[in-house]
Amino acid sequence: MDSGKVRELKEFIASCKSNPSLLHTPSLSFFKSYLLSLGARIPPQPKTEPVDDENYDDILEESDIEFDTTDVVRPDNDPPQKMGNPSAQVTEDQRDAAQLAKSKALDAVSQGKLDQALDLLTEAILLNPHSAILYATRASVFVMLKKPNAAIRDANTALKINPDSAKGYKTRGLSRAMLGLWTEALSDLHVASKIDYDEEIGMALKKVEPNAHKIEEHRRKCERLRKQKEQKRAQPKKQPKDEAQDKDTLSALKDGQVIGIHSVGELETKLSAASKTSRLAILYFTATWCGPCRYISPLYTSLAEKYQKVVFLKVDIDEAVDVAARWKVNSVPTFFFVKNGKEIDSVVGADKNTLERKIAQYSSPF
């Protein structure tokens, strides 16, 4: 092994010793799996503290996603390969010589002599720098050598010469997948499959699509959280005065109790308080001489105790004639259901089952 790579490996091992949690990094899952296959013991991943929603931007990164990184390689940082002169004039003899060099290169590939194939394809490119297929073919050899950056340079040149080069899109897609650029790889492979589908593209798509879909789902999640955060920030913060008023409003609603109403002004105050707190209000019209009212009133009181977040109001039509007239009460008992200041339903008569069913229905937040 190259001495430089050995030195890098030693530095990596030293980093893992000082910080074992590195082994839980998603991009190192292949190394973790290898260690486990040898019987190694991996320290458990340290628990993280709960994160404040306000700081979600700091943690929702793509590095947190579990990818299949089986075929991912380290980026190649070799000096750029030789490229042809795009403005050069190419003779017929040069085209023939380039084609011959390409044929020899393909023979070398079939024999596993990839470095020799690269030399021959470079020779062909220098002879005929206007051929997209020569660049795309050399890119495919770089893919075989696990040199994705070099392959991408050639694929980009091929696509610049011929924007419809299926091999250009294919080699660039395969190279981007090697670098873990899942979304970009998926885009290239989809284009390549539409131009000229083959089995290799199909196999690559099966590996790339799940990772690309994870990124897309992750980004949708981030977008939802960002919108929630913006909505939260857009809501005006309550001032101490507003909070005091809210407390007064809640105390005036008397949770779990039936509130007697004796005037139009008193009713409007209670209905306004119910609206401010987004509560359902029930307006019960009764009379002392009403037999069914005497039957339903104890149930109404027990329902107030059961549904403590509902505002239960009670009006005697003989005491508060103006209230009964405004609500056009023709018979008792009558129950009006009010939400956000608007009548949404009513029950006429002492039908206890319908009354409770509608209370349960309209008091639900959904």
Results as ranks from 00 to 15, higher is better:
L186T: 09
Q245H: 12
I195L: 02
A185M: 07
I201T: 09
P240F: 04
D242K: 03
P210L: 10
L225W: 10
D242Q: 15
I215T: 10
D248E: 15
R219A: 03
L271K: 11
E217F: 12
I201C: 05
L271H: 10
T249Q: 03
L250S: 04
K247R: 15
G265D: 13
L189M: 07
Q239S: 15
E199S: 02
Q239I: 08
K241V: 00
L253T: 02
L250N: 04
K221S: 04
D242L: 08
K237L: 01
Q245V: 12
L267M: 13
A204P: 03
K247V: 09
Y197C: 02
V191N: 07
A252S: 15
V264R: 05
D188C: 01
T249M: 02
K214Y: 14
D248A: 13
D248L: 14
A273E: 12
I261N: 00
Q245K: 12
E268Y: 13
K221T: 02
Q235A: 00
V264W: 03
R220A: 08
A204C: 01
I261T: 01
I215P: 13
K237Q: 04
K238F: 04
L271S: 08
L267D: 06
K227W: 13
K207D: 00
S193E: 03
H262W: 06
V191Q: 11
G265H: 09
K238H: 03
A192C: 05
R224A: 11
D188K: 00
D188T: 01
V258H: 04
A192E: 06
S275A: 09
K238R: 00
E199G: 06
K232C: 05
S272R: 05
V208E: 02
A252P: 13
K221W: 09
S251Y: 08
L250E: 00
E230R: 11
N211Y: 14
K229R: 15
H190E: 10
A252Q: 15
E217V: 12
